[in-house]
Each structure stands twice: as C-alpha cells, then as structure tokens.
Computed example of a mutant assay.
Amino acid sequence: MTASSRGRYRLWRRLDWQAAVNSRPFACNVTLYETVIPHSVTMQTISRAVALLKCFEGGARSLGLSELVQLMGLNKVTVHRLAQSLVAEGLLKKHPGTLRYSISYGLLELGRELLNPRGVIPIAHPILARVAELTEETVMLNLRDGDKAVIVDELVSKHPIHYSIGTGFSADLRLGAAGNAILAAMPDAEIEELLSRPEPRRQSGLEYTSEEMRDLLSTIRSQGFARSVAHRVSGAVGFASAFFGPEGDVMGAVALVHPDNRHPGPERQEAFAQAVIEAAAELTEALCFSEPQSQKDQKETVS
C-alpha cells in the first residue's frame, strides 16, 4: 500500500466512523470499531472498585494512595485509576490539599432507597424518639438485609457513658438482640438454613449449638422480645422486638442498648423489654396502615 493509498484509507475510516456515529446512537454495536472487553476483565474491575470502597469500612475517614495500595495489594497505577474513576462517578472524594481520598455523599444517594424502604425511617423515627425519652438509652432501628441486621437509624443516649454502634453497621442475625428478634420472626426453613452455617463469634465468647439457638428463638417468639449480653459489643446489654410490613413479612427490629452495669434491677429490665415490644407493635401498625410513598408522590404531583 502506497503512502497515498494509506492516507485515503485512513480518511475513509474516519468518514465511515463519523457516518456510523451520526446514523445511530453511539454504542458498542458500531461493528467496524467495536472493542470487545472480556467479561472476566469487567468483573475484575467491578470487584476491585468494590474492594477499594470497602477499604473505608471500620471508620476510616480518609486514606492516601499509598495506604490504599497497601490495603488492596495492587500496584499504584491500578489503584490510582480505580480511585480516579470512583471520584469521577461521585462515589469518592479527593481532598485537594492532602490528596487523600474519602467516601462521598454519592454513596448515600445510591443507598437512600435501600436504607429507607417503604419510607420506614420517617414513620419509625418519632416512635424511636419516644422510646429514647422513656428509657434514656440508645435506641436503634434495624432492618433485615438477607442474613444480616443493618442499623439505619440511631438515637444516642445523653448519658456521658453510652453505646453508639452507628448507622450502616451490619451483623449476622445470630448476633445481638435485634438480629435474634428478626431471626425468630422468620420462616422455619430460612432459620434452619442460617443455623446450618458456622457460628459467628460473639464478644462474650459464648457459643450456641443449633439446638440451643432453636430453644432461644422459641423463647423469643413466646415472650415477644430478645435480650443479649455482649454479642456485638463488649459490656452491652440489648433488647429488641421485631416489626412487620404490610405483607406480614418481618422487616426489622426496634432495639435499645445500655451498659451492663447501669440497670441491674429486674424492674428496669422489664420496662426496657416492654418499651421495645410496644414500639415494634406501633411501628407494625403504622406501616400496615400508612399510605405507600409512591401514592403520596403521585398526589403531590397532581396537586
């Protein structure tokens, strides 16, 4: 091919490319210049991006590039590209002064509906507030997420010494009063599937056999609440009761937690149990008879 013909060929390619772009939406179906990315490469990139975001679990406020490289075990160029892509998508924030990265509010936007299904938080919050005022202890709203309980709302006690686990924290349903209350309200088949897995570690070091867990869940069902000591947090006593959605499925649990040395008397303990039972029942009723958020939005649009 002569220099002249090569030039005409390159020009033809440019014109053909432009024609293809102008004639149909830009997409991977422009056959002449299609670049096929192997599925395994795509999945690897997604996995690495998720792994990078998980580096901020456990309370890390910001991380430098070298710290991310060390945590991920990848080369600096790869980690930098991943971080820059996540910054561009609004999931990470890069601080100009320090060049350190932190998670962005874009993650909250992604998880807004996940953390507030059926508009449960605005409905539950006043109920939690009344329990917090009555007990003067930290009160939490937990939602079921598969085999985990996730804290989506928390009102922290005003006592100088208190427990605050934090929104977004998740734990195995076999850990803590909230998880146990949810687990007890699940169908037997789902319970058995979870009990077949290895036991999670509790802060107290206590371990349950499958039969002991079945007995515990039976007790929770009969009394309407769960109580735990040092399951998720050392020195913490928790009370929780499950609440249900309009379809009758367990959605989560209302829970409170206090230091184990603050309320040793049985009367106070009974009051805490009754408080979460009543709150869960009130929330269940509110959810079952509340108007779906989608219908509210439609009415506001019409008006």
Rank of each mutant, 00 (worst) to 15 (best):
A230W: 11
F169V: 14
T31E: 15
Q44R: 12
L52V: 02
F243C: 06
K148I: 03
Q295T: 13
I191E: 01
P292K: 12
A20L: 11
Y105M: 01
L283S: 08
R227H: 10
I161P: 00
F243T: 10
L74T: 00
L110C: 06
G146T: 00
S102R: 03
T42R: 14
T45L: 08
A275W: 07
V21C: 10
K148L: 12
R118G: 07
E270P: 13
D147M: 09
G97S: 04
P198L: 05
E267R: 15
I220H: 08
S66P: 10
E270Y: 14
R24S: 09
R81W: 12
G235D: 11
K76D: 07
P264Y: 10
E199I: 05
L183I: 01
R8Y: 14
S228T: 03
A286K: 04
T31H: 14
I165S: 04
L63V: 01
R10H: 05
H231N: 11
T35V: 14
Y33L: 11
L175P: 06
S241L: 04
R197A: 03
V302D: 09
F244E: 04
H159V: 06
L206T: 12
R130N: 09
A184G: 03
L99R: 11
R81L: 13
E207C: 13
G235W: 01
S85Y: 00
R112D: 06
F243E: 06
M43H: 11
W17L: 14
V152E: 11
S40V: 11
F26G: 14
T209E: 07
S104Y: 03
P187E: 03
K54I: 00
R6H: 08
E291V: 14
R8C: 07
R24M: 10
T2H: 03
P117V: 00
S170Q: 09
V156T: 12
A226Q: 01
L217Q: 07
E278R: 13
M251W: 10
Q298T: 09
A83G: 01
L175T: 06
P25V: 11
E193A: 13
G58P: 08
G248H: 06
Y208M: 09
S218V: 07
A149P: 03
S222D: 15
P200A: 03
S204T: 05
T2C: 02
I277M: 12
F244V: 06
D260T: 12
T301H: 14
V150G: 00
Q84A: 10
P122S: 03
V50G: 10
A171D: 14
A189R: 13
P96K: 00
L82D: 13
S104I: 01
E154H: 07
E154F: 09
A83N: 02
D260W: 14
Q293D: 15
G59E: 00
A226I: 05
L11M: 09
G235R: 01
H231K: 05
N261L: 15
G90T: 05
E300V: 10
G248Q: 04
K76L: 09
Y9P: 05
I151P: 12
C28Y: 09
S4D: 13
V36F: 10
P264F: 08
I46S: 05
G265N: 15
T301K: 15
A51T: 06
A236I: 06
Q223T: 12
A230I: 09
N180P: 07
G252S: 05
P38S: 07
L68Y: 01
P25A: 13
E192A: 06
T2A: 00
P117C: 00
V87G: 02
G176H: 06
E207K: 14
I37D: 08
E278S: 14
A185P: 05
P200L: 01
Y33I: 11
